[in-house]
Design a protein around this nucleic acid. Structure first.
Length: 252
DNA sequence: AAATGTACCAACCGCAGGATA
DNA sequence: CTATCCTGCGGTTGGTACATT
């Protein structure tokens, strides 16, 4: 590894000025992309090669799309992220005019949001389940108290209390399944609106959008792989076809 | 109106790996 | 073959604008 710390000393950092942008643009127009260390030296900019490259790739490069990510683009991002994970540069190749940084930032913002709302709902749901459990328990106890009015019977109740609760537990376990949380998850995810609900229904994603790209063949291959992934997501989430979009395959 | 929280964006950093001397 | 250089990637941070309390 090289020692960037030493080399980078004295180079300007922080936001780029319009003058710097102009210098960099002109230099790249003249000499082309790449060889960023030469760009850094030759352009008269007091910036590191890395910084120059980043500025060019993320901001100055021609053909960059500015503005909000469209729902279609969001769909592709989510789909490809499900496919490849945090391979931002790979994902960015299928979104013409968008940079890996942009996609990464977008995902981070929205992922965090969903993660929060998801865990919030998870907590809410857990509380609901616990409440229900407590209510049932209390009801049962009240019934027992009513039925077993005298002290004698109360004594019997006391000794058998453990068994009553045990039976109650078993009954609930049979209803909820052995793993409470795993049973709750699909329910919670159903609360989260998903792009896929309309994307898949409208056939937008797999029908037309990919063709915006000039890499149609590759993209359609990816769509096939992604569709296989959907199938995996169904089975993993334990959902049926019509629960796909909400069962948590790609929603986090 | 001020304080606080949230979303978004630009830029930096460390690292890995390919290219080259 | 090895050491160094260079590029690109992904993670992270800091700043700003806007929304909410």
């Amino acid at each position: 590894m090289m020692d960037w710390g030493v080399v980078q000393q004295g180079w300007r950092k922080g936001p780029w000025t319009p003058e710097e942008d102009k210098l960099l643009s002109e230099y790249v127009k003249l000499h082309g992309e790449g060889r960023w260390t030469s760009v850094a030296r030759g352009s008269g900019l007091n910036r590191s090669g890395k910084s120059c490259r980043l500025r060019w790739v993320n901001y100055l490069r021609p053909g960059l799309k500015r503005g909000q990510i469209t729902p279609q683009e969001e769909g592709i991002i989510i789909e490809l992220h499900a496919l490849w994970g945090n391979k931002w540069s790979t994902i960015a190749r299928y979104l013409p005019g968008r940079t890996d940084n942009e996609i990464k930032n977008y995902w981070r913002t929205h992922f965090k949001k969903r993660e929060k709302s998801s865990s919030h709902k998870q907590e809410k749901r857990k509380a609901q389940v616990l409440n229900k459990k407590l209510q049932l328990q209390q009801q049962q106890e009240q019934q027992q108290q009513q039925q077993l009015g005298d002290d004698k019977m109360k004594a019997i109740n006391f000794t058998s209390e453990g068994k009553i609760h045990e039976a109650q537990e078993k009954q609930e376990m049979a209803f909820m399944g052995p793993d409470l949380e795993s049973q709750c998850l699909p329910v919670m995810y159903q609360d989260i609106p998903s792009w896929a609900d309309f994307m898949v229904e409208d056939g937008v994603l797999w029908g037309g959008l990919w063709n915006l790209d000039d890499q149609v063949d590759h993209a359609s291959n990816c769509s096939k792989i992604a569709k296989q992934n959907q199938a995996t997501a169904f089975s993993f989430a334990g959902g049926s076809d019509n629960t796909y979009s909400s069962a948590g395959g790609y929603i986090f």
